[in-house]
């Protein structure tokens, strides 16, 4: 059995006045039915990677890759029209702030229904039923009320659950979550992660979880890619993240203050130019190995 998604030598560049800027540089990775974390700091290219998979790089940005295959089919060869069917139907994406992803003047229920009806050509009543049951699965206690509410009436945590419900209705095979919980409070964060985890597991989906938070990623994912200035510098099993060896990963982990281990002086990451020059580490794994 092959990987759900395989990306080979992906590069994203932007021409600027001072030459070409490469946001992502020749990275390769694969995704099976697993939870893959991509961690890195701002500007590391992690969000750009997520967008590149869906071919959502805006001009003048340039996307190059040997291939990006979804179940063996190369996404790069698809027309823009075919690509639109892939987005949302087979690969869904959840952004950091649900407020920017929902239409502020449309009822939440109508927005979800519309997406479903476009996808499944279902009747209005059928769509509503499906929507309500979906809202229930993301542990919204009063789906009828939420269905008739407007986005601004929702809290951040509620909004993110709605986004998850909306993105999962068409039964995609892959979910890309870009910092889905960074805007949320810690207590809410946990709930949202648990909901997402349960749904992804039950449906046997692949999840790409993009985050800057090493602790969340190590607790929540199966496998992690660590990105630095557009490259993958290290890959490891998520539960072994704290035994990582690359100086960047080690430096990042050490710079986080910890309640249980007080220090007078936090360790500061000493950046090394070599990190951004070394070739990217491959994140491709054959599915058998993961299990």
């Amino acid at each position: 059995m092959t990987n759900l998604l395989e990306v080979k030598n992906l590069t994203v560049k932007f021409p600027t006045r001072h030459g070409v800027f490469e946001a992502v540089r020749r990275i390769s990775f694969s995704l099976g039915r697993e939870r893959l974390g991509i961690v890195g700091e701002s500007g590391s290219g992690k969000s750009m990677t997520g967008r590149a998979i869906l071919r959502l790089i805006k001009s003048p940005g340039i996307l190059e890759a040997d291939y990006i295959t979804l179940e063996g089919k190369d996404l790069l060869t698809l027309s823009e029209k075919e690509m639109r069917r892939v987005r949302g139907h087979r690969i869904s994406m959840i952004m950091q702030d649900p407020k920017f992803s929902l239409n502020p003047v449309m009822r939440i229920g109508d927005q979800i229904c519309e997406g479903y009806r476009l996808h499944a050509r279902a009747s209005r009543a059928e769509a509503k039923k499906k929507t309500l049951s979906m809202l229930e699965t993301v542990l919204i206690r009063d789906p009828e009320r939420v269905f008739n509410a407007y986005p601004h009436e929702m809290s951040g945590g509620m909004g993110q659950r709605i986004m998850i419900a909306m993105m999962l209705i068409p039964d995609p095979q892959i979910l890309i979550a870009d910092e889905p919980t960074s805007a949320l409070d810690v207590t809410v964060q946990k709930e949202v992660l648990e909901i997402m985890d349960k749904l992804v597991r039950e449906r046997g989906m692949g999840l790409i979880f993009i985050s800057h938070d090493l602790n969340v990623v190590s607790a929540f994912c199966d496998r992690v890619l660590i990105m630095y200035s557009g490259r993958i510098v290290e890959t490891c099993r998520a539960d072994q993240l704290h035994e990582a060896t690359h100086p960047y990963t080690v430096g990042l982990l050490n710079s986080i203050p910890q309640l249980e281990h007080p220090v007078d002086h936090l360790e500061v990451l000493q950046r090394d130019d070599a990190w951004s020059k070394d070739p990217s580490v491959s994140g491709i794994v054959e599915t058998e190995e993961i299990a």
Partner: peptide, 25 residues
């Protein structure tokens, strides 16, 4: 705080949420 000696339930909930991230492993 470091010894996780909190009296109020809300403080304990906060402590749980922030320490749990690491303890999950």
């Amino acid at each position: 705080l470091r010894a996780l000696k909190a009296n109020h339930p809300y403080t304990r909930q906060l402590l749980d949420a922030s320490v749990q991230k690491r303890k999950n492993e």
